[in-house]
Design a protein around this nucleic acid. Structure first.
Lengths: 230, 230
DNA sequence: GCCATGGTGGAACGTTGTTCCATTCTCATG
DNA sequence: CATGAGAATGGAACAACGTTCCACCATGGC
């Protein structure tokens, strides 16, 4: 004879994919990617895991939705009217800052390549390349190189964030790495030795932008702009 | 009263970190990253998981060792004597091919930034930059851009491999993506529409190399080589 | 008033990384 | 040769996770 289980009162505020994604983003932002489980999420929403699965196919689906959310906000916020080269740099920095603020987005972007967020990023860079005078045949490679740079930095940033999640001091952390690099055989790793000293004090954001500028320089060098008077 | 458990005969061939890593690489290569668990590994080595933990700290440690193994082989195999620009392209292609052959290496590289493999890659690119006439102050940024490109493509490739692990036809798979892209609003995604057609037939390896060339072009444009006669 | 259907919550399952521990082997030392 | 300490082994057990399952509830159309 089954005992009637006392049921918790039904929630008044309806569950929805939006609310679930929102809660997931909160958890990811405040407690890190490791903290998001269907149990913590259910607790946060005061429900059970089964209810969540009614709105969301699985964890990948949830993470994809959360990532798209963040990226879509960035793409909407980036001002578009400026000159093409500036627009590309602004877009790149906007993406960097968003990923820096939400490291888990970096993990997602470098894990799920055909996310709905990707064409948005592609469009953002690619459409502005025309203004730089890049011929159509060269646009695909140029755009993909820019996108790869963003995704590459995103992945590395997220991995870093995972590593010094508990530490307070970023410089000290990089100092430890630099020390490891400095202990490698100087005969075989002369360059690494020279660079190790710059490691603790270098600025990820500036280095990211320097990369974007190098790529833009390469694009312009490969596709010399048509002179304005021809 | 504890029953004496009949013990399996002790292995004759000694376990060691090298043998464990070797077995892990075999599993990763033949059955994919998802197939490597401590249980499959133990079965493959005809032992228990506890024995493996005697030689290996945890799964991250194991994966790091396996990744370093593969990368060290690549770095050793790349011929070094050629002219700097060619040497950089050769090194980049060597890395690409290795990651293409072992997609799990891509996953690792984009997840664990301060892996022992990274300084090797840094050294490989950085040391050859000198020959291109890049001044010392610009070498860090230039090298990091090249490394990021490799790691970025590595991550995306690994993610792709994860996706069409079961499928046979790569072109058909990319065709599906292209179709999704083609269904986006043409007014908002004009560039993506144009590029979607090139997606199914494009060659990842060539596009990767095109990116390397763009970056190299940018490096050279930013640091004009000293004329041989001055 | 009823009942089909959309939605909920929590127990239960299978798999994973990791820990624990009783056991066995090796080998330096008496 | 005997012995004891430490290295090494193998498998049971644990906790946590993603996911599935199912008994239950609310509500709106008949």
């Amino acid at each position: 004879m089954a005992i009637k289980k006392p049921r918790a009162v039904r929630r008044t505020d309806a569950l929805s994919k939006e609310r679930i994604v929102e809660a997931a983003i909160e958890i990811l932002d405040s407690d890190g990617e490791g903290a998001l489980t269907f149990r913590t999420l259910a607790a946060h929403l005061a429900t059970g895991s089964g209810a969540i699965y009614w709105h969301v196919a699985n964890k990948d689906d949830l993470l994809a939705a959360a990532t798209n959310d963040v990226i879509a906000r960035v793409m909407a916020d980036v001002p578009g009217g400026t000159r093409p080269r500036e627009a590309i740099r602004t877009l790149a920095l906007g993406l960097f800052d968003a990923i820096d603020a939400h490291p888990w987005v970096g993990t997602q972007l470098s894990r799920a390549p055909w996310l709905a967020a990707i064409p948005q990023i592609f469009e953002g860079f690619g459409s502005r390349l025309e203004g730089l005078g890049v011929p159509e045949g060269a646009q695909f490679d140029a755009t993909s190189t820019l996108v790869i740079h963003v995704l590459g930095v995103a992945g590395q940033n997220a991995a870093n964030a995972r590593l010094y999640a508990h530490r307070t001091d970023r410089t000290a952390f990089l100092g430890e790495i630099a020390q490891q690099w400095a202990q490698l055989d100087p005969a075989r790793y002369p360059f690494v030795h020279r660079v190790a000293a710059q490691l603790p004090e270098h600025d990820d954001r500036e280095q990211f932008l320097a990369g974007i500028d190098l790529i833009l320089g390469g694009i312009e060098a490969a596709n010399p702009a048509p002179s304005p008077r021809t």
